[in-house]
Simulated scan of single mutants.
Amino acid sequence: MEYAARIPGVLQSLKETRLSGLRPVTEFFDYNRISRPADSNTAFSRISYNTRYFSGNYALIIAMLAVYALLTNLFLVFALFFLVGGFALINKFGADPLQFGEHTITQKHLYTGLFVIGIPLVYIGAPISTFFWLVGASGFLILGHAAMVEPGVESEYASVEEGTV
Rank of each mutant, 00 (worst) to 15 (best):
I119S: 03
A4H: 13
H109V: 05
G118S: 09
V160I: 14
A38F: 15
T112D: 15
G21W: 03
S13T: 13
P37N: 10
D30M: 02
R18H: 08
A4G: 01
A146T: 13
R36I: 14
R6P: 11
A69W: 06
P127F: 01
E16Q: 09
R6N: 06
G9P: 08
A137Y: 02
T26A: 04
F115D: 01
P151V: 05
I62H: 07
Y31S: 05
L134P: 15
E150S: 05
N91M: 05
G85T: 14
Y123E: 04
T72G: 03
V67H: 01
F81N: 09
L89G: 03
R23C: 03
E156I: 03
F87K: 00
F78G: 02
T112W: 03
V84M: 06
A79L: 01
F132A: 01
S40C: 03
P127D: 01
A5D: 11
R23A: 01
V25I: 07
T130V: 12
E156R: 00
S129E: 15
Y53T: 08
A137E: 04
L65R: 07
L89A: 13
I34S: 00
H145S: 02
S40W: 14
R6Q: 05
V122W: 09
T42G: 09
T164S: 11
V77K: 00
V122G: 00
V153Q: 12
L83W: 14
K15M: 09
A5R: 12
F29T: 12
H103R: 01
L143Y: 12
R33K: 14
I119C: 00
N73L: 04
G101E: 10
L143H: 06
I62F: 12
F82Q: 06
L60G: 11
P24N: 03
S13K: 10
N50K: 11
D96L: 04
R36V: 15
V25Q: 04
A146R: 14
A38G: 06
A5Y: 15
F81V: 15
Y49H: 14
K92N: 11
F29W: 15
N73D: 07
F131M: 01
Y68M: 05
Y111Q: 05
V10N: 11
S155K: 14
A137C: 09
W133K: 01
D39G: 12
G163V: 04
A59G: 10
G94Q: 11
L114Y: 12
G125P: 01
P8K: 15
I61Q: 02
E156Y: 08
S45K: 14
P24Y: 00
L80P: 12
T164E: 15
K15I: 05
V153R: 08
G94K: 01
Q12T: 07
T72I: 09
Y31I: 05
F54H: 12
T106R: 09
P151N: 04
F78W: 07
G113P: 04
T130L: 11
L60N: 07
F115N: 00
I34P: 11
G101S: 05
Y157C: 01
V10H: 07
S48F: 06
A95L: 07
L114D: 03
L121V: 02
G94H: 05
M148E: 01
T42S: 15
I61H: 12
L83C: 05
R6L: 11
A63I: 06
F100V: 09
